[in-house]
């Protein structure tokens, strides 16, 4: 593992670089997939970058608001690039809020736009696993197995490798199901269900889970997301009973007049 890349006087943590690469690759794939689904690729791209910017600003502002007493006399430090002074939850809320506002403003169809985001979500899942491997975060529980890795002074489950493999498997499944989507929203809900399922299973091998009275919080959240995804898949399929799989692909929607 190489947590720090030392370039002259600059100490650059590898994990954020991997995440940044994931964001850029994911955003590119989202643009491409949006066009494929017949969406305005520029509008979707703008929405993604707006959400990212809002997420970053929101994460910092959220942190500052929670520690207002510390920042009150040193306002300039609010804009200093200190990665440890970000609040992920605030960032997530702001990113989703900005994305939703943009989508409403430019009348992007909800479920198809969410479908367009799926390759980006899957790529970010892979990038997150690699970033965890680079930094040693999200480490596994102690285990004596032939495939255990030595990390933080103990032999452990290679939980980061599990995470990467699961995300790669989801990428393959998404790719296989991409052209067979029976209705808008299918790809997004499929990926959401698969990620929730992978967290549900793999969290058990983690050595750093957030716990509440012994319960792993991520597993409870994943179980909830899995249930919601399955219910949403069922409800959406009922409201879109039949449709030609081919009619759902972008090329055909763009290039062909459908018969009444």
């Amino acid at each position: 593992m190489f947590p720090i890349l030392q370039l002259g006087p600059a100490a650059i943590p590898v994990a954020p670089i991997v995440l940044l690469a994931g964001v850029l690759l994911g955003a590119t794939l989202i643009e491409w997939h949006a066009a494929r689904l017949g969406l305005d690729r520029d509008a979707v791209s703008n929405m993604v970058y707006l959400a990212l910017a809002a997420g970053l600003i929101g994460a910092r502002l959220g942190y500052v608001i929670q520690h207002l007493d510390a920042f009150a006399n040193d306002l300039l430090s609010i804009v200093m690039p200190t990665p440890t002074t970000l609040d992920p939850l605030s960032g997530l809320v702001c990113a989703i809020g900005a994305g939703v506002l943009y989508a409403v403003r430019y009348q992007l169809p909800l479920w198809r736009t969410l479908d367009a985001l799926t390759p980006g979500i899957v790529i970010m899942g892979i990038a997150l696993g690699i970033a965890h491997l680079a930094s040693g975060d999200a480490f596994g529980a102690p285990a004596q197995l032939p495939w255990s890795i030595r990390l933080w002074e103990e032999d452990r489950h290679p939980s980061q490798a599990y995470e990467i493999l699961a995300a790669l498997a989801i990428l393959i499944l998404w790719r296989l199901g991409r052209d067979r989507s029976p209705f808008d929203g299918f790809q997004f809900l499929l990926v959401a269900a698969l990620f929730a399922g992978s967290v549900l299973v793999l969290e058990a091998f983690r050595g750093d889970s957030w716990l509440f009275r012994g319960w792993r919080i991520s597993q409870a959240l994943a179980l909830g997301i899995l249930a919601l995804s399955l219910v949403a898949l069922h409800l959406l399929s009922r409201s879109h009973p039949t449709a030609s799989p081919l009619a759902r692909t972008g090329e055909i929607l763009i290039g062909t007049e459908r018969e009444p």
Binding site: G197, L200, A204, S209, R213, L226
Partner: peptide, 28 residues
């Protein structure tokens, strides 16, 4: 997705998930 098999599948998946969550609970 609209069939009864899907209900059974969804219920089975969620029950298995719940059982796995219980099984992997960390002793206090």
């Amino acid at each position: 997705l609209v069939s009864r098999r899907f209900y059974a599948f969804a219920v089975a998946v969620l029950l298995l998930g719940a059982a796995w969550t219980i099984q992997s609970r960390v002793p206090l």
